[in-house]
Nucleic acid binder design. Structure first.
Lengths: 105, 105
DNA sequence: TAATAACTTAGCGAAATCGCTAAACGTCAT
DNA sequence: ATGACGTTTAGCGATTTCGCTAAGTTATTA
């Protein structure tokens, strides 16, 4: 999990964060997880997510981990479930901002 | 190279195009190539690009090929040089549009 | 306390990715 | 024709990624 606050000041960390985000977005399953998360209100349990995907639960679990390491989702353990929440703001300020360079001028 | 016109109608091709684009954006060197291309007016020769990067020329050449297959750049052979041009519009209508889902609502 | 539910971690094999060097290719100048 | 230039293709080894199954781990339920 990337510390967003730290990344915002240190350009080196900022680049690493951008890289993790784009790497996370490189796999269709991970993009779909973010979509599902978004259209279901922003949060879901691991099982709720895994149940919607064709691949095995452990595989989905690892995708979730990568999303978490990129900072695109956060997790909270509640009882024996884990709740994943999307961080839409990060998406905008990393990948979104990078893309915006090509719109300007 | 992905046929953009075809991709715009067929949802399956559209998804494949999106996937190629995000895969292309997953590598920092390829993102930088697009940046350099953009800030130098949108077009450059292969050598002009390769000269700005630390990695070997063949490696850069392969990155360019991936960008081309994603449709993010186009090539034109002129004499013994090859001119690469960025397609900013594609960037916006694939990755950009995907990201915009998370801004709406 | 034993079983079950909800997940993650470990570990494996196949395939993709990335960097390099060496070789090939088409074009231009001599 | 010969050689040099600009660039891509071929091919290799190292690393990463992705899917799976099996084996944990922690929290509830019986």
């Amino acid at each position: 999990m990337a510390d967003a606050k730290a990344a915002r000041r240190d350009p080196r960390r900022e680049l690493e964060e951008l890289d993790r985000v784009f790497k996370a977005l490189a796999h269709p399953a991970r993009r779909q997880i973010l979509m599902v998360l978004h259209f279901r209100g922003g949060e879901m349990t691991a099982g709720g997510i895994a149940g919607r995907f064709a691949c095995s639960w452990p595989t989905t679990s690892r995708h979730l981990k990568q999303l978490e390491q990129a900072g695109l989702v956060t997790v909270e353990s509640v009882g024996r479930e884990r709740i994943y929440r999307i961080d839409k703001a990060l998406l905008g300020r990393t990948a979104g901002e990078w893309l915006r360079w090509f719109e300007k001028v």
